[in-house]
Amino acid sequence: MITAGVDIGSTSSKVVVLEEGEKILSKVIIPVGAGSSGPARAFEQSIREVNLSREDIKRVIATGYGRNTFTGADQQITEITCHARGVYELVPGVKTIIDIGGQDAKAIGIGKGGTVSNFIMNDKCAAGTGRFLEVMSRILEINIEDLADLAASAKNEISISNTCTVFAESEVISQLSTGTAREDVAAGIVQSVVGRVAGLVKRIGVQSEVVMTGGVCLNWMIIKVMEKELDVPVIASPMAQLTGALGAALLAFESAS
């Protein structure tokens, strides 16, 4: 039986096609998300790559911010439940998940069998999210992928507000205009995101193993600083931003079986 998970985030669309709930047939990421052509294109591409049609897929579950607008799905499940299921498959000992997505951050407590025991989401502000890192990278004139390396070379990390993206942007511009080194600002940006998200995680209780998902977990400095902040090892999900789609595909398999 073939199932698929479609994770429609605010900044990207991810699809995982699964055979018998075990073998990944295809996985696709398209860097545009809810409200765009991204979800449909990602889904089309994922089934075309393995010469399948929609009829070949027994069940499709949509998740993420745009889950309710994807017409090709049989069911919608939130990204919280899907990330929990996905991470549990990849790291069975998981107790806490940190998911930093494009527009929000979530801390998820995991109970028996990969079920969600508790969760908390950030406020509406974009501080502590992938969007925050995007905005800050633009000001630093670097690609978001290079932020970790730049931050690692900091000598005198500065402090940046972690309560509001708009104010933080003003702070960063102000720091740069007074001659603060870009790497010190970059380290301050990383610390700002981690400080904000670690606060969320502490509110649900930090229990090892801690796994980070979402595109932001590809930033190794975020992982390193998060470990320091939480005082526990933090594992980057092996499937990073595809973890939610994997969870959705697994849940599709389980509900169809």
Binding site: I80, T81, V116, I120
Partner: peptide
């Protein structure tokens, strides 16, 4: 914890919280 506001027209984040909570208490093993 559901933060509510009478002046915010978009409620999608609230929807995610409510749906996640419903899923959480339904799937509890």
């Amino acid at each position: 914890y559901l933060e509510l506001d009478l002046v915010t027209p978009s409620l999608e984040q609230v929807r995610t919280r409510i749906q996640s909570f419903a899923e959480m208490i339904s799937r509890k093993r």
